[in-house]
């Protein structure tokens, strides 16, 4: 079928794009969404290998990742809301109180 490396390459590209999003955007929500993108890239790798080796453990792991990502998003967004209430802005660069 399709060589495995194509899927892996796609995953790498998506991962890199996710990183770029985390690093380059100042809107906290966009940062979060980039984070989700990175999760997905990892999931893709799992599924690709699961298919390659014809075992199901990769898919099971993807299910776990999804659930955990969902939990993390819930808490993260709650945090975002709280921060917005405090500062009135969701600019990531505004949260620099822990400056050394």
């Amino acid at each position: 079928m399709i060589p495995l490396v194509y899927y892996l390459g796609l995953a790498v590209i998506l991962f890199a794009l996710g990183i770029l999003g985390v690093l380059l955007r100042k809107n906290a929500l966009v940062v979060f969404m980039s984070l989700e993108l990175m999760f997905n890239a990892a999931n893709l790798v799992f599924i690709a290998f699961s298919n390659f080796y014809q075992i199901l453990d990769g898919q099971t792991l993807v299910i776990f990742v999804m659930t955990t990502a969902a939990a993390e998003v819930a808490v993260g967004l709650a945090l975002m809301v709280t921060i917005f209430r405090h500062r009135g802005s969701i600019d990531v660069d505004q949260t620099k109180d822990l400056k050394g």
């Binding site: 079928m1 399709i2 060589p3 495995l4 490396v5 899927y7 892996l8 390459g9 790498v12 690709a48 298919n51 390659f52 014809q54």
Partner: peptide, 18 residues
């Protein structure tokens, strides 16, 4: 990453149809 993947895995490994 692409370089590492292609040098280690190569294009011979194919995925299976569903």
């Amino acid at each position: 990453a692409v370089y590492a993947l292609t040098s280690h895995i190569g294009q011979d490994f194919l995925t299976q149809p569903p």
